[in-house]
Design a binder for these strands. Structure first.
Lengths: 343, 343
DNA sequence: ATGTCTCTTGTTACCGCTCACAATAGCGCT
DNA sequence: AGCGCTATTGTGAGCGGTAACAAGAGACAT
């Protein structure tokens, strides 16, 4: 009677790695007890716990979270979708986000969507097939199909950086319109009467530009020169944009740039042409990156707390994952106009 | 005879999501056939494929890669461990790495280890418990215990940025010693005879500094002032470091900085003190970041192709994952001294 | 002693998918 | 018609865990 000569034929070559079974046998307990030692140590008698822990380290056991996730439908995985990491604002927020998640034992699956958000659908599908417990998205504008996928996933979702559209679930960011308006009012109140805007071809940057233009229009200023460059904007593009603006005639006035890098370029180009900053050309950047305060002259800019965005987004998700209810579904981290010496 | 009244009691509340079973029933085929349509479409008759695809879209089926990975022990997941994303060199490489992986349908799990590589062991354990198919690491220096974990994982591993230690498996990077030596020789051959090094307290940066000092020593120059700042280095630290160097006496000479940001700070501080660059103070940075070429004066620096590192690392792993053999286990992407106007 | 209650540990049945193999169908050929 | 061969589809047994429940062991009051 070959009762249970398991493992001879028909059994797939197991990876050779230790499993719960291996540890359980060595410790002389059931798999379930080992599982408990790992996940709810307090529910196991201290003596037994000792024995099991010893067996774990002896076997070099590494839990398999795929199996665990499959069985429990909780993966301890949070996915993030970001346009690019080459932009310090995004990578900074992701850094803070990941750090905060790690504190609660969550890990991060990163998806890069690219700028025109081309492959958002496919990317999201690939991500959802890993069954993350929660989702971090950049921006609040999504295709209808994407929104459907998101809702169907039925997990906590936080959208970041932008508050312009209705959030699918939760949102942490600031109003780009408010920034555009704020900068316009700031320039206007400082007495400038000629204006331009240099913006990357990025949805949120354009949002700021448009509101800037609209606000100036409300003050009776109709001809604001707008120059759009490919995203992400760079210092070189700033130099080049100012070159274009000055090409015909001797323009003088105030310029809103969609990034500090671009603003830096504008300052350098102005200086190279012997123009005074802010006397001839006033500039304000966006982001308050490291170098802004140390340029000469120090750059006026709009400060966004990118780390706060990442951290607050993580906390919102963690609260929900812990079964809690967030105080506010939409968190505005605001912005600050930092007046330095270029405006 | 209650034969098979399945699903009444004792059955866990399934998430309500479509599974292979759902699709199979709707299409009137077996689960396996649906699986084949998804993973090996060419092995299924076109007509049947049509029917199944229709069923998939009707049910809104999203494959469960946890289950798939568990069953097949291939996860299509690659994990990356990076000290921080706040450094453009690292985030740039990761960007290129992720982009390249996506082309082959792999996704990335990101782990941030922090600078002193404190939690490397725990982080690695957490990562390995997701059973990634391959691993991207930053640096080639690991604890003995870490190396053991890595070998036990038995997956392709690529270590990046550094070639100083023996690679566990494969490596893509450059020699930091060679950079230090190169900069020293460069400065020396330009005729400078007073030297300093400003370095972040980061293993690889210190490697460059040390070799720089050693090379100068070989030229009979014994007193090279070294200033170490916390990692990551910033523009502010560069200003401050130069301030310290100039505090007692009127030092003149050439300075190697461990980052472009720091070098930028040195240039600004020198200018603020009315010193000429490179006449009084010559500076070289590291990284050739966006702004380096556009500073005034343009910054001399060491160019590293961070995107190549990410891309080549991805390609090395993908080759191995596809069952191939890489041509060279260690790839040196080299570096280039970019002479601009600060040296 | 006995029964009840609580705390710890074990048992069983899945989670959703893929592997290896079995079965069936389709085809050309004698 | 009958045969063998290949291409396509189906079957059954896991992959390595966890949820839910069952069973056993003490503790305590009656």
């Amino acid at each position: 009677m070959p009762a249970k000569t398991a493992g001879s034929r028909g059994t797939r070559p197991t990876s050779g790695k230790a499993t719960l079974e291996t540890v359980a046998k060595l410790a002389g307990v059931s798999r379930m007890t080992v599982s408990r030692v790992i996940n709810h140590p307090e529910s196991v008698t201290p003596d037994l716990r000792e024995i099991v822990l010893k067996a774990i380290s002896e076997t070099g056991y590494v839990p398999n979270l795929l199996a665990g996730g499959l069985a429990s439908s909780r993966t301890k995985l949070v996915a993030a979708v970001v346009p690019t990491l080459t932009h310090v604002l995004f990578s900074g927020a992701i850094q803070a986000f990941t750090d905060r998640l790690a504190l609660d034992g969550y890990q991060m699956l990163l998806g890069l969507s690219g700028y025109p958000t081309e492959r958002e659908g496919d990317l999201l599908q690939a991500i959802l097939s890993r069954r993350p417990d929660a989702l971090y998205l950049t921006g609040t504008s999504h295709l209808a199909q994407t929104r459907r996928q998101l809702r169907a996933a039925n997990i906590p979702i936080v959208e970041t950086w932008d508050l312009s559209h209705k959030a699918v679930d939760m949102a942490v960011g600031f109003s780009h319109e408010a920034v555009g308006r704020g900068v316009a009012e700031y320039f206007y109140s400082k007495g400038y009467r000629e204006f331009a805007a240099f913006s990357a071809d990025d949805e949120r940057a354009l949002l700021r530009s448009r509101e800037y233009v609209a606000t100036l229009a409300a003050h009776g200023i109709g001809d604001v020169t707008c120059i759009t460059t490919p995203a992400p904007s760079t210092m070189a593009m700033g130099r080049e944009a100012l070159g274009r603006l000055l090409a015909n005639g001797s323009w003088r006035g105030a310029i809103q740039c969609s990034s500090d890098a671009m603003a830096h370029g504008v300052v350098l180009e102005a200086q190279a042409r012997g123009l005074s900053v802010p006397g001839d050309i006033a500039v304000i950047g966006f982001g308050d990156l490291d170098f802004a305060a140390y340029m000469s002259p120090p750059l006026s800019t709009v400060r966004i707390d990118r780390f706060a965005i990442g951290r607050l987004a993580a906390e919102a998700l963690l609260t929900r994952l812990a079964g809690g209810r967030v105080a506010r579904k939409v968190v505005d981290v605001g912005f600050e106009i930092v007046e330095r010496a270029t405006s």
